[in-house]
Design a protein around this nucleic acid. Structure first.
Lengths: 234, 234
DNA sequence: GAGCACAATATTGTATACACTTTGGGGCAA
DNA sequence: TTGCCCCAAAGTGTATACAATATTGTGCTC
């Protein structure tokens, strides 16, 4: 443990370490290595990543903005636990934003874009075959983000990115195990529609894909999770 | 100067001072007391608000998240200057989100909600009569936020809140002076449609209101502003 | 033994100190 | 004069120290 964080160093030599930490934490949440409700102690994180609490605090604030983390004053930061109402809102927002975005992506997608999407789906399949459920879930979300980026609307893409991150928490809490991962086919045909520059089909496929996801959730009560016991009594 | 910040103390006794600072700055930007591009020095703000740089830094990070402020590493924080492309994206996002939201608000609005909207419009008119352009602009944006809140979709309302804040920067940079403020009537009839629980009309009025706003912008080149000279050479 | 009050501990909130980067100016050389 | 380099000053980035608050454990009282 306590290996210093590997700075991703996006493009140039500048590397705010708080960004690296928040990305690392976001990915851990996205891959469901961090369960909803778990406490994120500042000192603990500071030791793990080999930085001061200043950096950790900044990273936690960033995550709180995207609603991946809840910060309670004088009590600390916790991985967020979206309520059923919030979960519904997230998916309703996605159903409003993403189909339109998929339509735009289908209109604008270049050869390069389509190649990237194809490669992405391949990684997704590989992760599934290797049994890396967390990584597969992460990649599955990132596909939606990539589509939004192809649509060329950075602002909306940013919103979608937030919604997708929160969706991973929602899946952790509300996913019905019964429903198989029908995603494989859905993503494949969606990418195909975009590759064919078929906006109508892309929009409709995205819409039905989201409805499928939404209806695969059991939004009555949050799944009981380790560490959640205490919070239920507060 | 240097009067300590008046903590708003939202509901309970908890008051993160960084929140108070970021709200104060956001309002100043919204009311166009802070021009796009102006530098927000940490020490300066710390003295003004009577807190340490720690707090200021946190507040600036919050604002950067909403894209009201741009932070350049080792160079400092500046009030954001949205590009024409960004401006278009913001309004396109609004045109996607707000009409649907107005529709939902018209469906759900209670007597109380409608009274609040009416009171809001009154304040708006009063601010205009008193010649307080900044406050009028701020209130005008807040009406949109309130409508989104009435719709009961907190997630989408949050997005809209961000978009409205950014819109004030866009107006500062790209508003054609020629176009009169047609807002008065637009807001009035919009609130009326919501009060009548007429979703179709509310949606359509919101849509056309946004189109009007959008077309009152000159999105070719950012308006030259005090202090922007230096930045053009950087 | 149960409940409460208080002290000890742990953790977060804020301020300050120090290190690093950028910036601006003055001096020196061509 | 012009161009360059180096140094000083200013400002941001990070770590640490201290203060305030919440939590937990202990012992007392009833």
């Amino acid at each position: 443990m306590t290996d210093a964080i590997s700075a991703p160093d996006g493009h140039r030599g500048d590397t705010p370490s708080s960004t690296a930490v928040s990305l690392a934490l976001a990915k851990a949440i996205h891959e469901q290595r961090l369960e909803p409700g778990i406490k994120l102690g500042e000192d603990e994180l500071a030791k793990i990543y080999g930085v001061s609490r200043t950096i950790i605090r900044s990273a936690l604030q960033t995550l709180a903005h995207g609603q991946l983390v809840e910060i309670h004053r004088n009590r600390g930061a916790f991985v967020a636990k979206p309520t059923p109402k919030e979960a519904r809102e997230v998916f309703e927002a996605r159903e409003l934003l993403e189909p339109r975005t998929a339509r735009m992506a289908a209109k604008k997608a270049s050869i390069d874009d389509i190649a990237r999407l194809g490669a992405h789906i391949d990684s997704e399949h590989k992760a599934l075959e290797e049994g890396d459920q967390g990584k597969a879930l992460y990649l599955s979300g990132q596909l939606h983000v990539q589509i939004a980026q192809i649509a060329g609307q950075a602002t909306i893409a940013g919103f979608i990115e937030d919604l997708i991150a929160r969706s991973s928490l929602i899946v952790a809490l509300y996913w019905k195990r019964e429903s198989a991962l029908c995603e494989r086919h859905a993503h494949h045909s969606l990418v195909q529609a975009i590759g064919d520059n078929d906006p109508n089909r892309a929009e409709e496929l995205m819409r039905s894909h989201l409805v499928d996801l939404h209806s695969a959730l059991d939004l009555r009560e949050p799944r009981s999770l380790a560490g959640s016991l205490r919070e239920m009594l507060e």
